[in-house]
Simulated scan of single mutants.
Amino acid sequence: MNINDVSVELSTGERRVTYDGITGLRYWRAGVPDAPVLLFLSGGGHLARIAYGVDGIDQTQFLDHWLAREGWSVLALSYPTDHPAVGAPLPEITLVEWARWVARATADVLDENPARGVFAALWSMAGRSCNALNAAFRECGQELAAVISLAAMPPLDGLMNVTPGGEPLTSGNLWAIGPSDRGPDNLWVREFLADLAAQSERDGVTIVPEQRYLQDFLCNTPIMLRGTPQRIRNGHPEWDRAAAISDTRSDELDAYPLAAAITPTAPEDGRHVLMDAVSWSFVCAQAIRARWQAAGQPTTRWPDLVKLALQSRARLQREIPGNHFFFVGSAGAAATTAAIVALSKELRELSDEIDRLLVG
């Protein structure tokens, strides 16, 4: 399909963007000058529309609406897929390549709208990119202020579940979730629909009509963005744990960013409820350690730095009632926005406190 096919209608604020032969879908809404930018990266099987919606659906059901009320800008990026909104699948794209694309897209936006802190909100699978993303920003001469997990899985080896035998692939070697592969027998789609229905029931309103969700939000996904040993090389599936570790940069301890976590509460998303606060606290601790080492390992205020690192877990975690889609629906989106704003302030204060301790 021609990616410039005018018969494929994009929603307000969307634009297909290509860098170095990689095409993704960009949504950009500029907020108040000098206000922060929320960079949203989506999880498996979903366009980034899950953060901002599409034309014809109540915008109050999505994060973008509530962030706009806070003055924040939103940059939401969808990975290469065969979904008609993108129409440029790249089944062999790696996390490192995707992170560099994201950094380039962010740099272009900031060239036009300079000087704002960028906080990356990573949902689900997108958490696997946090180290690669932090490194890619540095390569571009940018600074990623921090990442905020939305029920996301960090890039630690062995955390991601893999279906026995591997995730199902389309004939084009994409992780089969949609749009043409979203049949009732697809386990992932059944779980997504159940979770979205539960969020709708909690809100007392249909957040997204099922057919619109299947058509406009779900997409087949490049499998290597999951950061697992399931890989595609030269058109053929293979398993390579070492390649997955290298791609997620989980073994590059200086690549970890400052991080916070917003966690759901429902047992249906139990692994995130139980694990995320601890997992992302580890990520943040690695970032603090890296800054200490880069400063020459000063010890003048060592006890204060240790105390700060220990306190960071409590400071940098929030809970929102709901399941894996807790940030969707007006109540969840409003609460998640409030948590993002609060955590961004905590992360900035933490960063400033680290700097003061390291020079003190």
Score class of each variant (00 low, 15 high):
residue 277 A to F: 06
residue 286 Q to D: 05
residue 283 V to G: 09
residue 264 P to M: 00
residue 272 H to V: 05
residue 262 I to A: 12
residue 290 A to C: 10
residue 281 S to N: 14
residue 272 H to C: 14
residue 264 P to D: 01
residue 263 T to F: 04
residue 287 A to C: 03
residue 286 Q to E: 09
residue 282 F to G: 11
residue 276 D to K: 03
residue 282 F to Y: 15
residue 259 A to D: 03
residue 289 R to N: 13
residue 287 A to W: 00
residue 260 A to E: 02
residue 289 R to G: 13
residue 286 Q to T: 02
residue 284 C to D: 10
residue 279 S to K: 10
residue 265 T to V: 07
residue 286 Q to M: 07
residue 275 M to A: 15
residue 266 A to I: 04
residue 278 V to L: 14
residue 263 T to S: 14
residue 289 R to A: 09
residue 258 L to T: 02
residue 288 I to C: 05
residue 259 A to L: 01
residue 287 A to G: 05
residue 273 V to K: 03
residue 262 I to V: 09
residue 288 I to V: 09
residue 281 S to W: 13
residue 260 A to L: 01
residue 291 R to P: 01
residue 291 R to A: 12
residue 286 Q to S: 03
residue 288 I to R: 02
residue 279 S to I: 07
residue 275 M to W: 11
residue 285 A to E: 12
residue 263 T to P: 02
residue 279 S to A: 15
residue 258 L to K: 10
residue 282 F to A: 11
residue 280 W to V: 00
residue 272 H to S: 14
residue 260 A to D: 05
residue 277 A to T: 01
residue 279 S to P: 06
residue 277 A to R: 04
residue 260 A to S: 02
residue 271 R to A: 15
residue 287 A to V: 00
residue 264 P to Y: 01
residue 276 D to M: 07
residue 260 A to K: 01
residue 291 R to M: 02
residue 289 R to S: 14
residue 260 A to R: 01
residue 281 S to D: 15
residue 292 W to D: 04
residue 280 W to L: 08
residue 284 C to N: 09
residue 276 D to E: 09
residue 285 A to F: 04
residue 287 A to E: 04
residue 282 F to Q: 10
residue 289 R to L: 13
residue 273 V to F: 05
residue 285 A to S: 13
residue 279 S to W: 12
residue 280 W to S: 06
residue 272 H to R: 11
residue 276 D to R: 02
residue 265 T to P: 05
residue 291 R to D: 05
residue 281 S to A: 15
residue 291 R to G: 09
residue 268 E to D: 13
residue 281 S to K: 11
residue 266 A to M: 13
residue 277 A to K: 05
residue 260 A to F: 01
residue 274 L to I: 04
residue 288 I to Q: 03
residue 274 L to M: 09
residue 275 M to F: 13
residue 269 D to A: 10
residue 258 L to H: 10
residue 264 P to Q: 02
residue 292 W to V: 03
residue 265 T to A: 14
residue 263 T to Y: 08
residue 258 L to Y: 11
residue 269 D to C: 09
residue 273 V to T: 00
residue 285 A to N: 08
residue 265 T to S: 14
residue 263 T to W: 04
residue 273 V to Q: 02
residue 282 F to N: 12
residue 259 A to T: 00
residue 261 A to L: 03
residue 265 T to C: 07
residue 267 P to C: 06
residue 268 E to S: 14
residue 270 G to L: 11
residue 290 A to H: 07
